[in-house]
Each structure stands twice: as C-alpha cells, then as structure tokens.
C-alpha cells in the first residue's frame, strides 16, 4: 500500500510519538511567549535559563529559536498522527525531520555546556523530548520492517 499502510490498525509507537511531541510543543510555545512578551523565566531546577535565552544563539535574527521549535514540534505531531493512522508516506519525512531536530539538539547542548556554560531547564526538557522522539521513531521503523519480513 503506498499512501496508507493499514488503515484499520493504529501504530502505537507513532501515536506515543505524537503525544510526546505535544510536551515539546507546549514547552516551545511557553518559551516563545515569554520571549515575545519580554518576560523573565523562573528557573526552578537549574539557574541558567536567562543566560542561555539572552545569548545570541536564542534568536535567528529577531526570530526566537523557540518559535522555530514550536513549528518543528507541531510538524512532528502532525506527521506522527498521520503515520499512526496508516499514512505511510509521512514516515520518511518524520524520520528526516526528527534526525534534523536531534542534530540541532546536540548542537544546542554543546553550546550550553561549552560556550555559554549555563543550562536552561526548558531547553533540557526539549532535548529530552527530542531524544525520546528519536528513540520512538527508531522503534517504529524497526517494528514496521519486521512486519514486512
């Protein structure tokens, strides 16, 4: 089947990925709103949020990086939901997007650890969400492959 794999079966790894991406979406929306309204962030676990989010890496031009994250997470959610309901054409797109997000996450972690020397808990949550999404998509693709065999 080219456009839909098995329309009567829900793929649970993709459905879980969709739910997990909502956590990332909420986190990114929160950061974007705080940025756009000029509010300060309350850091309750680690104390480097303001240092990280006022660094030059927090924006691309005047555009908050968090807003780009929100768009990415919403796209992941949409592709995952479609994949979960059997729209197979979304799977390679989802895999490519999550690979790009995972690489970006590694770069942002490097910046926090070695360049800015501060960590932001909201950024760490986003990193955790992206890592979980990467694992889920890997699992989902392996499950799909084993069924084909």
């Amino acid at each position: 089947m080219s456009s839909t794999d098995s329309p009567n079966r829900i793929s649970w790894p993709y459905l879980i990925a969709a739910l997990v991406s909502l956590i990332g979406l909420g986190d990114a929306i929160y950061l974007s709103v705080q940025d756009l309204t000029g509010q300060t962030l309350r850091c309750t676990i680690v104390s480097g949020c303001n240092e990280v989010l006022s660094s030059p890496y927090a924006h691309i031009g005047a555009f908050p990086l968090a807003a780009l994250g929100a768009i990415a997470y919403f796209t992941v959610f949409s592709l995952s939901i479609l994949a979960a309901f059997g729209y197979g054409f979304t799977k390679p797109l989802l895999a490519m997007l999550i690979a790009a997000m995972f690489l970006t996450t590694l770069w942002l972690l490097y910046l926090q650890a070695f360049v800015i020397h501060h960590f932001c808990q909201y950024c760490l949550l986003s990193a955790a969400v992206t890592t979980i999404l990467t694992v889920l998509v890997l699992i989902a693709s392996r499950v799909g492959r084993s069924r084909v065999i």
């Binding site: 300060t40 303001n50 240092e51 989010l53």
Partner: peptide, 12 residues
C-alpha cells in the same frame, strides 16, 4: 541574572 536578561531583551 534578571538585569542582564532584561538588557538582553531590549537589545534583541
């Protein structure tokens, strides 16, 4: 941290 953050916001 808040003062530096607020000035950073203004700069942005």
């Amino acid at each position: 941290a808040q003062r530096i953050f607020q000035d950073g916001k203004r700069a942005h």
